[in-house]
């Protein structure tokens, strides 16, 4: 679905990404992990051309993203930013804005847009909240609204930048289910996560980044065996067998005296 080849990107003065290669398949959850400041968020932004890249190519559906217009790209890839303003509008309006890339003159949302928005809200179980103001909702519910918006955007790929921030544990787990659900619908899902055990549990494909490079990418099991997480984060990742499969946890490397 998305293919990144030899991507390099720099902010004025310092390089952020160098030589990143990654292929993001449809119907799979790709999770990106890495220490703070390693360029994960910038990488996602590059995929929706919020951050223009210096060199390398990003192919979406086999076509270079520089050849898409902003609107065309927004019909291919949905992006949920990490820092979001909470506007004072209703849930329905918010979800409807997912249809913005499809708007043409006279710039009014049509019946079809409304029915797609309602369908998206039903899938997230928030159809009863349609008329509620967004800023009166809890963080977990608001997250559902944002995902419903991305669903309404009806794109083959969805990028989620740290979707679990500010969520309690139950909602974090729910968020992982949402991600799996999106992948089962055939979308290419990319998430940036900090919680390694959650990442190992959820990912079909785990990408480890450090200092602007993609160190390794593959199935969680393979990444675990390579020991690359241990060296990148300076921790020890361990696992134990449970009836549901492997559970991962991590420990500090520094032994207490």
């Amino acid at each position: 679905m998305i293919k990144v080849e030899n991507l390099s990107l720099s902010y004025p003065g310092h390089p952020v990404l160098s030589g990143v290669n990654l292929s993001i398949p449809a119907g799979k959850v790709t999770v990106i992990v890495g220490p703070n400041g390693c360029g994960k968020s910038t990488f996602l932004k590059a995929l929706v051309s919020i951050c223009p890249c210096d060199s390398g190519t990003i192919l979406v559906d086999g076509q270079n993203i520089s050849r898409y217009s902003t609107k065309e790209l927004a019909r291919k890839v949905a992006y949920l930013a990490q820092n979001r303003q909470v506007p004072d509008i209703s849930v329905l309006r918010m979800v409807l804005h997912g249809r913005f890339p499809y708007l043409s003159y006279p710039r009014r949302y049509k019946k079809e847009d409304f029915s797609i928005a309602y369908e998206a809200m039903e899938q997230m179980g928030i159809e009863d909240l349609a008329e509620e103001p967004l800023n009166a909702l809890s963080g977990g519910t608001r997250q559902k609204v944002y995902i419903a918006m991305a669903l309404a955007q009806d794109t083959p790929a969805i990028l989620l930048d740290e979707p679990t921030t500010f969520l309690d544990v139950a909602h974090q787990l729910q968020m992982m289910e949402h991600a799996r659900f999106l992948a089962e619908k055939g979308k290419a899902v990319v998430m940036v996560l900090h919680d390694l055990s959650m990442a190992m549990q959820t990912a079909d494909q785990l990408a480890v980044m450090a200092e602007g490079r993609l160190l390794r990418c593959g199935e969680p099991e393979m990444i675990f065996n390579s020991g690359c997480l241990d060296s990148v984060f300076g921790i020890r990742v361990c696992r134990f067998q449970t009836p549901e499969g492997w559970q991962y946890y991590y420990q500090s490397n520094h032994k207490r005296a």
């Binding site: 929706v48 919020i50 902003t70 065309e72 019909r75 992006y79 949920l80 930013a81 303003q85 890339p101």
Partner: peptide, 8 residues
């Protein structure tokens, strides 16, 4: 960022 992501 959200606006850009929506194609604005």
């Amino acid at each position: 960022d959200t606006a850009q992501g929506l194609g604005l």
